[in-house]
Computed example of a mutant assay.
Amino acid sequence: MAQKTALIVYAHQSVGAFNAAARDVAMQELAEQGYRVIVSDLYAMNFKASATQDDIIGDLKNPELFQYGDETMYAWMEGRLSDDIVAEQRKVEEAELIIFQFPLYWFSVPAIMKGWMDRVLTQGFAFSLQKMYNNGVFKEKKAMLSFTTGAVKTMFRPDGINGDINITLWPLQNGILHFCGFQVFAPQIFWCPAHSPAAARTAMLDGWRARLKGLLAEQPLTFAPCELFDLSFQGGFLMWPKVREEQVSQPFGLTTGHHLGKPLPPDNQTRAQPAGENSGKPDCRD
């Protein structure tokens, strides 16, 4: 049996950071499970965050109007992407599991990690209009976010000053990971380790280690599958009328993003829902 591969995309500047400790726990535990663990330490690599024309080798298809998405798609098809992008894409291809380890910056990932996503997950390689969401390129792969916050947990409650953490996570988990087809595990959130006592930080790492032991047995997060939508420009990629009708009697919206004017489903982006609970999988094809 071929050895499994895990990729950790890591973004923190300090070797003494809690994020580094969380990365090390994942490396150690996954290695004990038989994984070959690859780490892309973005700051140590001095990874370029900005998506520019330099990412393309050779002539542009349309030099008069540079469109990054189109040009990198053609470059990927023709083997003309820059070496640093190609190297990261090879890691993604090899990995069955990808963990993004980072501190939450401005309700999102650090710029250097966003740059990795912008540059590495090129059209064609990671997605297309024919291959997206549950029909996506990486539908056989698993991914998850593991991150620290500067805020305490209550600040990210629906009644907390920062608002619902589920809304914060929707663009990252649905708009990037699930969009590329990944099966997305619930995030590992380390709440405010910088202002927690040493015993609490140790307990956080112990909990992460314990979770990793059973990670692959977890159910991924639930997202609305493509089959619920009319995937045509004529239909506007809108939900089929039959599906909307079926949602009328439901107490919550389908997902954090597809709330349909209803209350958000509780913890839709932070835990897998039990089978049958707002699963979003009715047969919508007549």
Results as ranks from 00 to 15, higher is better:
M1H: 11
M1K: 03
Q3R: 14
K4P: 12
A6S: 10
L7T: 00
I8E: 05
H12E: 07
S14G: 07
F18I: 05
A20V: 01
D24G: 07
V25G: 02
A26D: 09
A26H: 02
Q28C: 09
E29Q: 13
L30E: 03
Q33G: 10
G34F: 12
Y35M: 10
L42A: 09
Y43S: 02
S50Y: 08
A51W: 13
D54E: 15
D55R: 07
I56C: 01
I56Y: 01
G58H: 03
D59M: 13
N62F: 11
P63R: 00
F66H: 04
Q67W: 15
Q67H: 15
Y68K: 03
G69C: 10
D70T: 14
E71I: 06
T72F: 05
M73C: 07
E78D: 13
E78W: 00
R80D: 05
D83L: 08
D83A: 14
I85N: 00
A95I: 11
L97C: 10
P103V: 00
P103S: 05
W106G: 03
F107Y: 11
V109M: 11
P110Q: 05
I112P: 00
I112H: 06
M113Y: 02
W116S: 14
M117T: 12
D118F: 09
D118V: 05
R119H: 09
G124F: 01
F125Y: 02
F127W: 09
M132F: 04
N134F: 00
G136P: 08
K139R: 15
K141F: 06
K142Y: 08
M144C: 08
F147A: 07
F147I: 13
T148G: 00
T149E: 04
G150C: 05
K153Y: 11
K153H: 15
N162H: 11
L169Y: 01
W170K: 12
L172M: 14
I176N: 08
H178A: 03
H178I: 02
F179L: 11
C180I: 00
G181E: 04
F185Q: 06
I189G: 02
W191D: 10
P197S: 03
A203D: 12
L205H: 12
D206G: 14
W208F: 10
W208R: 13
R209S: 02
A210L: 13
A210G: 13
A210C: 13
G214H: 09
L215C: 05
L216Y: 02
L216C: 06
P220L: 15
P225L: 03
E227R: 13
F229G: 02
F229S: 01
S232M: 04
L238V: 10
M239G: 00
W240C: 07
P241W: 01
K242T: 02
V243I: 07
Q247F: 06
V248S: 06
V248P: 10
V248M: 12
S249I: 05
Q250E: 11
P251Y: 08
G257M: 08
L260E: 12
L260F: 03
K262G: 03
K262A: 01
P263M: 12
P263C: 05
P265R: 00
D267R: 14
N268M: 01
N268K: 08
T270K: 13
Q273F: 09
Q273I: 05
A275T: 10
A275W: 01
G276K: 06
G276Y: 08
E277C: 07
S279R: 07
S279A: 14
D286M: 05
